[in-house]
Structure formats: C-alpha cells, structure tokens
Design a protein around this nucleic acid. Structure first.
Length: 805
RNA sequence: GCGGGUAUGGCGGAAUUGGCAGACGCGCCGGAUUUAGGAUCCGGUGGGCAACCGUGCAGGUUCGACCCCUGUUACCCGCACCA
C-alpha cells in the first residue's frame, strides 16, 4: 500500500468524529483514566511543533489505554484570557473577543489535523461566560472564607503593559509578558491567602507521584524553613528602654551570643514610629528613598557591595548577654521575608560578615572550626563565647538549648517561615474575568451575590488601559455604578480583572461536566473522574500554574466542592523542541517549525512519530528536517507491508521478535520512553523485511501497537486487510512472556574482563556446559594457552568471564 | 552563591540499571535502478594498518564500570542577600 496521507488523514479523522470514537463515558464500568495536557493559550501565531510534542505523550498513552479497555477522558480546551490577545487587539484595532474566537478556530483546526484523540464534546474556553461564571464563583467562595484580602502595597508594576504583576510574573525584574523592566509602585492589591495553604501544599506532595525535579521545584517555591522568632529590646541614646522591641526571625538562634548588630529593612515601620528619637532621620530617609528607586531585581543583584545607615539614637539589647548593639538599615534585609529585621552574626553569616567588615563592627566567634579573620564560618562545631551553650558540639543541640532559654524568658519561640508570598490577584486590564466585588461606602467590600454570577465583562470599544495604570473598565460608568448588594445604597464595582492564572486553576474540573449550569461540575461525576490520573506539561508551569491550581483544589476540597484534596495524581513534563540551530524556537530567530508545513509535506503520522522519536521525551532536542524524512521512510515501509503479507498464523522466525516488541512497546509507552518504543518497531520492521514475508495476523499485531503513534495509516491498513471496526478501539495485543526469550543465546566470553569471543548456547544451558563451551572456543582457548585459571564466572544469559594468570 | 541535572560516534540518541558500548534513526561512503537528478532498494560506517584504544578529565572499588565511590572541568535549568 502506498501511504497517501492527504487522502487517508482526512478520511479517518472524519470517521473518528462521526463515530464519536474518543468520547469519554461518564460512569462507565470500565476502569477510568483521566489524562490531562496543559490547554493552550490560543495566540495569533498558531501552534508550533512544541505544542504537538507536549500533547503527543499523553495522546499515545490515552490511545493505548483505550485499546486496553479503559474509559479514557482526554480533553482539550483554551486558556484564552490574557494580555497577548488584548495587546494585539489594541494593535490591530479589533476586539479581543473576535481575535480569541479566530485563534481558537485556528488552533482547533490544527489540532484536528494532527488527529489527536481529544474528546471534542468537552472543549472549554475560559473566556466563555458559562465558564468564567464558575471562576468567579470560586473566587467568591474564597472571599466568603476570608482567603481574599485587600492591601495597599508596593507592587511589581510593568510600565509597558500598565499592569501589576505577581512576584511569579516578574521574576528577574522583568515582566513575564513583555520582558521590560518592572518598577515598584504603591497600589491597591487584592491578595489570595495562598500562604495559609503552604503546609497543605507541602504535605500533599507526599501523596502524589510527581517527577522528582517537579516536586523539588515546588518545595523550593514554597520554601518552608523552621527557626525562631525573638524580641530584641530597644533603648534610646541614654540606654533607657523605650518600651518597644524589635522582632526578628532566625534559623540560627544558636549563634545569638555572636550577635553584634541588627539590621532592619529600609521600609521597617519603627523608623517612622520613633522618628523623634532618631538624630539622623534625614539621612535614613535619603537612604530609604534611594532603595525605593531600585527594583527588587537591582536590590538583589548588588550582592557584593553592602550599604546601610546606622540608626543614631536607638540601639538594641542582645537578649542572650544583655549587651547593647547598634541597629542599621540596609537593603540586604527585605521587608517581605520574616519580620523585616534580623539579628546579625558576622562570624557565622557571610552577608553579616561583609557588612561588619565594611562598617567596622565586632566579629565574635561562637562556633569553633573556621577562621573568622578570613571569612564567616557557617559549619558545625563546638560552641564558645556563649555562656550556657559553651561546649555543645552540634548546631541541633545548641538550637534546642537556645529555644528553651528564649521561651523560658518569654522573649522568643520556635517559628516557621515561607518564601512563598500571598498571591497578588488583580490586573488593571480588560481581557480577564471581572472580580465580583462591590465597594460600598457603608458596608465596605461586598461580594457580588452568587445568583448574579457571571458578572459579565462588558463589551468595550476602547480597552486601552489608563495612564495611571487603572483598568479600562473604570471608565465605564454603567459598569462601575451599582447598588450595594447588602444595603442597597449606591456603590461602585471593582474594576480590576483576574490574572490569567485564574481560569487555568480549575479547568480540569470543568472538563468533567463542561455544560453544567448549576454547579462547576456534578459532584457524582467529580467523584467518578477525579483525580486527574496523569498530568503532563512543561517545566515552566510546575511552580506557578501547578501551585495555584493545587491551592484552589485544596480549598475546594476543604469547602466540600471536590472529593479529593490533590487534583493531580501524577505529573510528568516534556522537553522543549529546539530549532535546528539548537536554540530555543522563537519568531525572532526565525527557527520556528509550523506543524502545518510538516503535515502538508509528510502527513500527520510522520509528524506524530517524529516528535516522539527525536529523543528522550523529557529532554530538549533540536528539530531535524532530515530525521523527519527518516520517519516518513519508516511509515512508507510499514505501508508496503501489505505487499508481502499473506496467510494466517505465526511466522516461526518472527515469533520471538513479535512478543519482545509487543512487550517493549507496552512498557515503554507507560514509561514515556516513546523513542525506544518506536525504535523497537523499526527493528522489528527490519527483521520482517529480512525474513521477507509476514502473515496477516502478524500485520494486524504490528499496526495495532503502532496505532497510538500513527493512527491514520494503521487504520487504513487495517481496513485494507479486512478490518471492520476501528483499529483505534480494537484490543491491545497481548504478549506471552515465555515467548519473549530466544531458545539459543549468544554469550560473550571474557578473559580477565576483556571480550575475546562469543559462543552460542541453548538458553537453558547449565553453567558447567556454558563454561565448557566457552573454553572450547578457538579464540578463547588460544588466549588461555599456558595460563592457570583462577576463577570462572558465569552470569546466566549474559556473560562468561574467565580469570587466568 | 545555593539547589538540581547533563556530558556517549559527524548528529539526535540507545544500553535489560554492574555484564558484548554505540540499538534505532539521521548523515556519510559504495553499489543497483534511472537519460539525469530525486525517490527507492542492497551493502558499509567509533578510532587505529595492527596488537589494541575508546562513554568530559584524574584517580579508586570490582573478575568486570557509561553505570558505584573520591576529586575535577564544562554546559544547561531552577532559586537567588530567604536571615
């Protein structure tokens, strides 16, 4: 058969659709399998081959599982709110709704051309009001439960996009969307109290099966540390207690006798509170102003050069030894972590050491083991200069002793800190879910009643953000002005919208019941389908998207809306496809490969096989046009099998190879080792051509295991050799373990660990016989000539090693 | 700086987890076919004339090491003054 992909691809895609071949069945008695891929953001550029690789992994697994008798839910949808669409709408003077619909259409046709076995009855679009109604609903529930709060804060602001960004969206001091520098700005910010779920998110990791590096990244992101809080009393210039203490957080309270100064963040409130006691307030303010100009990125970049100003008029008392110590402000202490104040131990902390050296502050060693004249010593050792801690040998014991001391004195206690911060949730943009809150002058912030959801996004002509960074919605009086749901008096609506992460935080729930008008999904259906059995996506979404969605899911579990605490039972990640130049694919480099071009030239199956064959699924690999042709050749040769296929039953020379290959493909798919699964089928194909013929039964087996990878050509062959039902749903071939081993095996014979020859023996041969056969081998015998055998080793089925002198 | 990972032919990558390194594919070389090119088919392809040598580098453990241990270099990815 000649592989005429133009005709074949369309033919089978139509038939799958007509027969609803890949529709998931709620409540089916079959075992369920929920495979999830990260739904795409429908950009104007269309899909690139990276999308195809991202979806092909679970596509193959889902197709195989269907053939194995699973009830498979393998859905797709569109994460369509967000800045890129809004920006290009402004650029092309059109409406984001129009662009979004157009882009979704484009993506849909591309996805269908590849022949993905998505359940197209369950497609969702996060910008659909029947969808975002429930995004708003979840937010409202969080509001009710006290997980939403508003605060005026210094925020990351992108002057280019005119939008406030979360810490996650502004890593490295760059806007995640436009990559311009972000600045700090005081803004009204809505926060979601994700930190309240920090421990649950951490503990939940024990109950799921994530790739080790995925787990590690999440743990680091949450960044839990245990340490101690302690209060350092403050005194004025005369040494009199001013009735205030400075609260610090430390993970090294064992070093407290080595504290020789303190540092507070420039924004620390005591500066204003005790302004009248500070003799150098102007100098301090100038330093603070200097810091405010820097972005957080700049602050963290200037790691080397420590700067700061000493508080003149206020000092602190080390609670361990009662000594008075100076207090400084410095930008190496952040207001956002711990208490915004630290106890500084220059002898045993590198940053404090640098600062002390620069400002000429005492450095007192309290742990032996280093050379504090040269550098800070952060290792373990015997405690010295530390009163009741002296002589203690380990950090652990010293910390315990100091914690006891602090709590007995009532000046400190054990405590926990997280790097993760609360989630800044509002954006001053148009193309997002309106935040369902009303500001009432009498009642404060009031949630929009549930029966009024969805709070629809008004259709605007002009959605360019305001210069001051306010939402375009703020200009629409009919949207802004409303009545308070509580007291009925005039009130104003919140005009900010939700971040793009909102809609994607729960989308996998909606697939389960995509048209439900009364609930985000039917509880019984949720119980049937949850959790997602396998979630695959990019490493870039492991911290932000996944942490956010796990947070929402934990919350929904706590309020009884979902039956599982964790949404995803298993998480894997695919590697990038690089351009043929080995660089990341990007429009500016001009190395992007369009899947449509590949399909036009070679057909969908070649594209599918190649993205999985090109390398280890989890690793990045460069695109190679000539390797694509290799996959084309493979499928052509598969098509040509129909020319040599005849008869029924088993070809003896191929029997073992078939059982081996079925086994390998079966297990490799589950291990996401798609490249070696395909290689095994290529090898088998080579063997078939060496033998020169194949039975129709064997051909059926071959195309059946190839079907998840190359569904179009295999369906066509199946039909051609008399198949009536869809091969895609026909049962997965079984293999007989006993038949995966050869009768005779080749064994390498080593002498002193070096291979000297090979022998062929029956697989079941006894050790003595194998060794005898090895010695009988001419080359081996020659090499043993004149030597004394010291030891003989036989690893069954593997190797013979004769040690001789 | 801290954490994690990777390093194998000209290239992408295999290697049953300590047992014949280089499966499979690309590329390349030769042959067949073709007026020619392309496509296709057949054969070859780590290096070396050879003994042998070969998995970033230097050691070690072992009958035997790509795999384990110690040290080291380069690159990639996270996080980044986290107290």
């Amino acid at each position: 058969m000649k592989y005429e992909f133009n005709r074949i691809d369309q033919k089978w895609q139509d038939r799958w659709e007509k027969e609803g071949a890949f529709a998931a069945a709620d409540y089916s008695e079959k075992p369920k399998f929920y495979g999830l891929v990260e739904f795409p953001y429908p950009s104007g550029a269309g899909m690139h081959v990276g999308h195809i690789k991202a979806y092909s992994g679970l596509e193959v697994i889902s197709r195989k599982r269907r053939k194995q008798g699973y009830n498979v839910l393998f859905p797709i949808g569109f994460d369509a709110y967000g800045l890129p669409t809004e920006n290009s709408a402004i650029k092309f003077n059109t409406h984001p709704r129009i662009l979004t619909d157009r882009n979704i259409e484009k993506f849909t046709s591309q996805l269908k051309r590849v022949g993905f076995s998505f359940d197209w009855n369950r497609v969702i679009d996060t910008t659909d009001e029947n969808y975002y109604k429930w995004t708003q609903y979840i937010f409202r529930k969080m509001f009710d439960e006290g997980l939403v709060f508003r605060a005026k804060t210094l925020v990351n602001y992108c002057p280019h996009c005119k939008v406030v960004l979360s810490n996650e969206d502004s890593q490295g001091g760059k806007c995640d969307i436009c990559h311009n520098d972000i600045v700090q700005k005081s803004k009204d910010v809505w926060y979601l109290r994700i930190t309240q779920y920090a421990d649950k998110l951490l503990e939940g990791l024990d109950t799921v099966d994530y790739l080790p590096n995925v787990r590690l990244q999440q743990e680091n992101w949450i960044g839990r540390s245990t340490g101690a809080f302690a209060n350092f009393a403050l005194v004025d210039a005369d040494g009199n207690d001013i009735g205030e203490s400075l609260r610090i957080y430390t993970t090294r309270c064992d070093t407290m006798f080595g504290v020789t100064f303190m540092v507070i963040a420039p924004e620390h409130p005591i500066l204003e509170k005790y302004a009248d006691k500070l003799n150098n307030k102007a100098e301090l303010d100038a330093y603070k102003a200097e810091c405010a100009k820097k972005t957080e990125f700049e602050r963290t970049q200037l790691v080397k050069d420590k700067t700061g100003v000493r508080l003149d008029g206020i000092a602190a008392v080390n609670p361990a030894n009662g000594k008075q110590i100076p207090v400084y402000i410095s930008d190496y202490v952040m207001m956002g972590y711990g208490t915004g104040a630290i106890m500084a131990v220059p002898a045993h902390d590198e940053r404090d050491y640098e600062f002390a050296k620069k400002f000429g502050i005492d450095i007192i060693e309290v742990i032996k083991g280093g050379d504090i004249d040269k550098e800070a010593y952060t290792g373990d050792g015997e405690m010295v200069n530390s009163d009741f801690l002296n002589g203690i040998q380990t950090k652990k014991e010293a910390i315990a002793a100091m914690l006891k001391f602090l709590s007995e004195k009532g000046i400190g206690e054990e405590g926990v800190q997280y790097k993760m911060k609360d989630w800044a949730f509002n954006r001053q943009r148009y193309w997002g879910e309106p935040i369902p809150i009303v500001h009432c002058p009498f009642c404060g912030d009031v949630g929009v009643p549930y029966e009024e959801l969805p709070l629809k996004l008004p259709v605007l002509e002009n959605f360019v953000p305001g210069e001051g960074g306010e939402s375009p919605l703020a200009k629409i009086d009919s949207f802004v002005n409303c009545t308070c749901p509580k007291c009925g008096k005039p009130a104003k609506r919140e005009t900010d919208t939700m971040p793009q992460w909102a809609g994607s935080s729960w989308y996998f729930l909606r697939y389960i019941d995509p048209t439900n008008a009364d609930a985000l999904a039917d509880p019984e259906k949720l119980k049937y389908w949850l959790p997602v059995d396998w979630y695959n996506g990019g490493m870039e979404h492991v911290t932000r998207h996944m942490i956010y969605s796990r947070f929402w899911h934990h919350f929904l579990y706590d309020i009884g809306e979902v039956p599982t605490s964790e949404p995803y039972a298993k998480r894997t990640a695919q590697g990038l496809i690089l351009g043929s130049d080995g660089e990341k694919m990007s429009k500016s480099r001009g190395n992007v490969v369009d899947p449509n071009d590949v399909i036009d030239e070679y057909g969908a199956d070649v594209l599918r096989v190649y993205v999985l064959f090109m390398g280890d699924y989890a690793s990045a690999a460069p695109w190679s046009d000539s390797s694509v042709r290799g996959c084309k050749r493979f499928l052509d040769r598969v098509g040509a099998l129909t020319d040599i296929a005849a008869g029924r039953g088993v070809t003896p020379e191929l029997e073992t190879a078939f059982h081996k290959t079925i086994k390998k493909v079966t297990t490799d798919i589950e291990d996401m080792k798609f490249n070696t699964a395909i290689a095994a089928m290529m090898s088998l194909l080579n063997e078939i051509y060496e033998v020169g013929h194949i039975t129709l039964d064997e051909l059926e087996t071959f195309i059946s295991i190839l079907n998840p990878f190359a569904p179009h050509i295999t369906e066509e062959i199946w039909e051609m050799i008399g198949g009536k039902e869809l091969l895609s749903l026909k049962e997965w071939p079984a293999y007989d373990e006993a038949k995966t081993v050869d009768d005779t095996i080749e064994i390498a014979v080593q002498i002193c660990g070096k291979v000297k020859g090979t022998i062929t023996v029956p697989a079941a041969a006894a050790q003595a016989d194998v060794i005898a056969a090895a010695k009988a081998d001419a080359k081996v015998a020659a090499a043993l000539e004149g030597k004394t055998i010291v030891k003989e080793i036989y690893v069954p089925g593997r190797i013979v090693n004769i040690v001789a002198k």
